[in-house]
Design a protein around this nucleic acid. Structure first.
Length: 722
DNA sequence: AGCACGCCGACT
DNA sequence: GTCGGCGTGCTC
């Protein structure tokens, strides 16, 4: 007896089913299959065929395969299992995260098995004796009852929406009304419209007129191929390198693209992007590329999936391309340090890590292409393009007057205004907690255990200093322990505050806001009119300002002083990305900072990203942080504080005896200790890959609170899903 | 993840 | 005396 193991897009391991009795195919490994699930139908992937008896409980029968050819090959199935193990999650969780478009809408028809007695039909289902019926009208629970009794015959297939368009079919007759003729000619000029209502609107007639034309056969609906998004193609000269490097760094965006073009000519090559905005910037240079990303309709993505499976020269994709059943010649991860690579779903996996695993599984080379490569790939053979020469202007906040805009910064903005140019003002917008530091001397509140700044929390009248990494807490001092002066107000300048300050100092300079949540209409700026754009790092993903002359960070330290060992690396990369914000101009990069001597600033002054990263890596190795180790975050959340606390203590107690010194950090309350009504606690593991694997084995079953695992934490603030 | 089953407080 | 809260366990 053959059994199917079916991976469903649910946080579960694959489930066993009997093969559909109506379909005896055996070459179904990797095909999508429709199965009964809790009385309804779900779509999964056959990940294993096993011969044998299943005794413990009665298995259900799968209903039908959706595919002729497999969606996934054995290579992808094996990868899925391996990646799930690596991410400490269920196979189904990862399947759901990587293929959010797996389940198509279904065409489902049912009837009573002809030889069955209609008397078995429960009330409401009598129609099933009459022959094939669409399933949607019937109670799924009752249908499942018949299914289980073995008297239901079913047909299931993928539902394809027919992309229809209204077109002219025959010449208008003289008898038609003026309005009808107008509508007919309007449609002829438009060639096609998507609906009757749209034509009525376009022609300025009632829908009834259009309907009349359809009924009389002058116009009608035809199926059309979904129109591909028009992309302006560009063909720059490929930039030949002496050898193909594992990591490519530096230069301007266009130079990196040119270098890539020189070594991804034959294909198939997968280019992985952290976000759609960046993918779109590459798209014009890869005219034949298939693209796959979350802004496309699910149906469109399924179509591209089938197409890509047949072969492709280039595929530009977000993480959704990772499971494509193609044997790549090589894979390229673009901007491998981007935080957008963190999967938002249950697996919490980090795509560059998954990509490396994928390349290993296929035995193909993987490459990384970034403005500044991540610490994780730093040791790989590199080709370094000369970095863009930034014009850096450091404003020392210990000397400058004026806050949040110093006099010098206002003067710069005034010049921008006088010369009718454009400026960007960038805010770190870390709202809820800040770092406590002295205005007079260099002292700042540091954690005694972690070599990280403590975060300042307002708790009643007293300030509380807390380490978000290890949980250490102390009371905030009233006076600076080093020089006895009063403490700098630990407020970080947000976008709103900056807009106010700009309105006050430069009322005549038009202001625009640009954050992930609120985007002003930038058309005047894009048309070249003067103005200042105030926003968060969302600006990096926004359109290019044609007259950009100044990039100002009123509180650059806000980007450095996150309680996070990766903060400096991120800040350094941000500065280089700002230097490359305009494709060929070199805007002045003005930073208001308490730390003009910060290594990242020196790196920009000396145009030497290598120097900075070497220093950073030495630090990571000294402290045992990634990439010198692997980290895994365990998170427990519950609406009741004691329950959550209890659970995390249980977990810590179970791990303590196994852990060596320094491997177990915490438990600590999450930086936002209560979020969406849940109390959140963290526990961090930090050690070698092998030790992490050992520690993660047989975690205790927690009662009460739910455990979530972040297999590759990138940022140590906020809940996992923020 | 969803969903059903199962034990302890505020109501007609 | 019941209705309903969500904590716990299961899904082939």
């Amino acid at each position: 007896m053959w059994l199917l193991k079916v991976a469903l897009p649910l946080p579960l391991e694959p489930m066993s089913y009997l093969p559909p009795h109506a379909d005896g195919r055996t070459e179904v490994l990797g095909c999508r299959v429709v199965v009964p699930w809790r009385g309804e139908l779900r779509v999964g992937v056959v990940v294993e065929l096993e011969e044998g008896q299943h005794k413990s409980f009665a298995l259900r029968e799968a209903i039908a395969y959706l595919d002729e050819r497999p969606w996934l090959r054995p290579a992808e199935i094996e990868y899925l299992a391996q990646a799930a193990r690596d991410s400490f999650c269920m196979v189904g969780t990862l399947l759901n995260d990587l293929l959010p478009f797996l389940e198509p809408p279904l065409l489902h028809r049912v009837r009573l098995l002809p030889e069955a007695d209609p008397a078995v039909l429960p009330r409401g289902l009598e129609a099933l004796a009459q022959g094939w019926q669409g399933a949607q009208g019937f109670d799924p629970k009752l249908l499942d009852y018949l299914r289980e009794a073995g008297v239901l015959q079913e047909e299931v297939s993928e539902w394809h929406s027919r992309q229809q368009a209204l077109v002219v079919l025959q010449e208008p007759s003289e008898k038609l009304s003026e309005k009808a003729k107008a509508a007919w000619y309007a449609l002829r000029d438009l060639r096609q419209v998507e609906s009757m209502a749209a034509l009525a609107r376009a022609a300025g007639v009632g829908v009834g007129v259009v309907k009349g034309l359809v009924d009389k056969g002058y116009i009608g609906f035809v199926e059309v191929e979904p129109a591909a998004e028009a992309v302006v193609t560009r063909s720059p000269e490929p930039l030949e390198l002496p050898a193909i490097p594992v990591r490519l760094q530096g230069g301007r965006l266009l130079e990196r693209i040119r270098a890539l073009l020189a070594w991804v000519q034959s294909g198939p090559v997968l280019l992985l992007f952290p976000e759609v905005a960046l993918l779109r910037r590459f798209q014009p240079y890869f005219p034949e590329a298939l693209v796959l990303h979350g802004e496309m309709k699910a149906e469109e993505r399924r179509r591209v999936w089938g197409q890509a499976s047949q072969g492709a020269r280039w595929v530009l994709a977000t993480y959704q391309g990772l499971l494509l059943p193609l044997s790549w010649e090589r894979m390229v991860v673009i901007e491998e340090a981007a935080e957008a690579y963190k999967l938002p779903g249950g697996s919490r996996a980090f795509v560059p890590r998954l990509a490396r695993l994928r390349a290993q599984g296929l035995g193909v080379p993987i490459h990384y292409c970034s403005s500044v490569n991540s610490a994780e790939v730093w040791d790989e053979p590199a080709h370094l393009l000369p970095p863009p020469q930034p014009r850096l202007y450091l404003l020392d906040l210990r000397r400058e007057r004026g806050w949040p805009l110093s006099g010098a910064a206002i003067a710069l903005l005034q010049q921008v205004q006088e010369k009718n140019r454009q400026a960007v003002v960038l805010s770190a917008r870390r709202g809820y907690s800040a770092v406590l530091r002295c205005k007079q001397c260099d002292w700042k509140a540091m954690c005694p255990n972690c070599a990280l700044p403590l975060r300042y929390h307002k708790s009643g009248r007293l300030g509380l200093l807390q380490c978000h990494q290890c949980g250490h807490e102390e009371k905030a001092p009233d006076l600076c322990p080093s020089c006895q002066s009063d403490i700098f107000d630990p407020k970080g300048p947000g976008v709103e505050w900056l807009l106010e300050a700009l309105a006050q100092h430069l009322p005549a300079l038009p202001r625009y806001r640009y954050t992930a949540e609120a985007k002003d209409d930038l058309r005047p700026l894009l048309a070249g009119e003067p103005g200042v754009l105030v926003g968060t790092t969302a600006i990096l993903r926004g359109p290019v300002l044609p007259e950009l002359a100044l990039v100002l960070l009123p509180y650059a330290d806000g980007f450095i002083l996150e309680s996070d060992f990766r903060a400096a690396e991120r800040y350094h990369r941000l500065l280089w990305q700002l230097a490359d914000l305009h494709p060929h101009r070199r805007p002045l990069l003005a930073l208001q900072t308490f730390e003009p001597a910060h290594p990242a600033h020196r790196a920009l002054k000396d145009a030497d990203p290598q120097g900075f990263m070497n220093l950073e890596l030495a630090l990571r190795h000294a402290l045992g942080y990634p990439p010198a180790s692997r980290m895994v975050k365990l998170e427990v959340a519950h609406p009741k504080e004691p329950v959550a606390r209890d659970a995390i203590l249980q977990l810590a107690a179970a791990l303590k005896p196994k852990a060596e010194p320094g491997e177990l950090l915490g438990p600590a309350p999450a930086p936002v200790a209560r979020l969406r009504g849940q109390y959140v606690f963290h526990l961090l593991l930090k050690s070698s890959e092998a030790r992490i694997q050992a520690l993660m084995e047989n975690l205790p079953h927690l009662r009460g609170a739910r455990l979530r695992i972040d297999p590759d934490p990138q940022r140590f603030v906020g809940l996992l899903e923020d």
